[in-house]
Each structure stands twice: as structure tokens, then as C-alpha cells.
């Protein structure tokens, strides 16, 4: 069994006439949290969506747990064990909190023990259990989106900017929840713009620029190297804390 759960090799993605990914090479180690960083428009969200099959890779290969998933349709990729949390609080607003979670349960039943654990991570969900998800606050919606991805054990979690637009106090709650999730041995690929959160959570980091991965390494090394941050991201991480 390879140490890497997910491998992208030379992945290109076109959206209409636009060439967005220009040969992405990325390896996601098992049981680790990998941060995917980069400036706006670098191709981070496109990379996640390409892994999920929402946009088809025009070249290159994506292997998940040794299986080629490059051309698989999205539902098959999801059923293979990859959960995706899109950016912008991607919940189903007309459904209740409960219904949102049941949707993600493959056999339609929620495991009470798992649910208790989720309520421990995100207590607000228990409080608003029967309310339409549309009436939740931004932070609660984001919690629900993440809870939906972890309502059953998944092999890999792809999470796109979970802290975007959230208040600092909520961000720290979210970081705490991710730390707890990490401690369960989950494999996570997390796109994040908040560098403090990235520093606190990441085991590994990949930095993207112009549709390519331009740096790979340990998150701690990037966090310590202000010059490298300046070179790769244009800003020191300290300036963003």
C-alpha cells in the first residue's frame, strides 16, 4: 500500500476555452492534513473540483488508493470514499440540518455515536437540528457543510476555504474541530487563505501558482521561512495573522 492516498500527475483542466490547470503534480499522504495554498486564481478550487470530477481533467491522471479515477463521474468518485466541502457554505438551504446530514449518509441512517461526536465538534448543529439550514449563521452553515462530509467515515476529505468570511472566534472553533478531526487519522486536503489556520493545522503544504504546484514540503518549514512565503505567496504569513 502506497503512503500516498491520492496522486495527481500532470493534470491539465480546461474550462471552456480557458486552460486553468497546467500540469498539476500533487501527492496527498495518508492520515495527514495537507494544505493547498496559493494566490487567488492560482487553481486551488479547480484542482479540488477536478479531483471530484466536477470538471474533467483534459490530460494527466488522478489515482485514489491505487485506482484511476480520472474519468470517473462525480457520484462514483464520491462513493469511492472522497467527501468534498465546496467553498461558500455549501449547504442545502431549504432542507433542515437533520436532512442535510441524512443526505450524506449512504444508507440513509445516522450513526448515533458518530452524531454525538459531530455534536461535540459543532454543538450549534444539535441546537438547530430541526431548523431549515438556510436560517443558520455563516459559521453554522460552514459547520454543517463540514459535518455533512464527516457524517460517515470517508477516506479523504477535500475542503475548500472553510474559514472564508467567518469571524475570528468562529475560525478558532473551526481550527479546533479540524485538529480533533486530524487526531482521528483522517486524510485531509484543505484549501485555505487564512495563513494562521494553515500554520496551526497543516502537516504538509503544496503551493500553487498559475495552475501548477510550485512548492511542496512540510508546513512547519514554510511557516518558519518568511522569505519563502514572500516568494511563493507574495506576503509574509505573519502579516496575515
Amino acid at each position: 500500500m502506497s503512503d500516498n492516498l491520492l496522486n495527481l500527475q500532470g493534470v491539465h483542466t480546461h474550462i471552456g476555452q480557458y486552460h486553468i490547470l497546467h500540469g498539476v503534480d500533487l501527492a496527498i499522504p495518508r492520515g495527514q492534513l495537507t494544505m493547498l495554498l496559493g494566490r487567488n486564481g492560482a487553481g486551488k478550487t479547480t484542482t479540488l473540483r477536478t479531483i471530484m470530477g466536477l470538471w474533467q481533467a483534459s490530460q494527466g491522471s488522478i489515482t485514489f488508493d491505487g485506482r484511476d479515477i480520472t474519468k470517473l463521474p462525480t457520484p462514483d468518485i464520491a462513493q469511492a470514499g472522497i467527501a468534498y466541502v465546496p467553498e461558500n457554505m455549501a449547504i442545502f438551504a431549504d432542507l433542515t440540518v437533520r436532512e442535510n446530514l441524512i443526505l450524506a449518509a449512504r444508507n440513509g441512517d445516522l450513526d448515533p455515536a458518530r452524531l454525538k461526536w459531530i455534536f461535540g465538534l459543532f454543538p450549534a448543529l444539535e441546537k438547530f437540528w430541526s431548523l431549515a439550514a438556510g436560517v443558520l449563521s455563516g459559521g453554522q452553515k460552514q459547520m454543517l457543510a463540514i459535518a455533512r462530509a464527516i457524517v460517515e467515515p470517508r477516506d479523504l476529505l477535500l475542503i475548500d476555504e472553510p474559514t472564508k468570511g467567518l469571524a475570528p472566534a468562529i475560525i478558532m472553533n473551526m481550527v479546533q474541530a479540524f485538529k480533533e478531526l486530524k487526531s482521528t487519522g483522517a486524510t485531509i486536503l484543505l484549501v485555505e487563505q487564512n495563513f494562521l489556520a494553515a500554520k496551526l493545522l497543516g502537516d504538509h503544504v503544496a503551493v500553487m501558482d498559475d495552475g501548477r504546484v510550485v512548492h511542496r514540503g512540510a508546513m512547519a518549514e514554510l511557516a518558519e521561512d518568511a522569505a519563502l512565503q514572500q516568494k511563493l505567496l507574495g506576503l509574509s504569513m505573519d502579516a496575515h495573522q
Binding site: P73, T74, A78, F92, D94, L95, L103
Partner: peptide
Amino acid sequence: QAIRENDFRAEALG
């Protein structure tokens, strides 16, 4: 209802 709200999200759930 999930499909009505967002078919991509519904696909991403499998």
C-alpha cells in the same frame, strides 16, 4: 430537493 438547490453538490454527495 437537494438537486433543485444545487445539482453539483448533490453529485458531489454521490
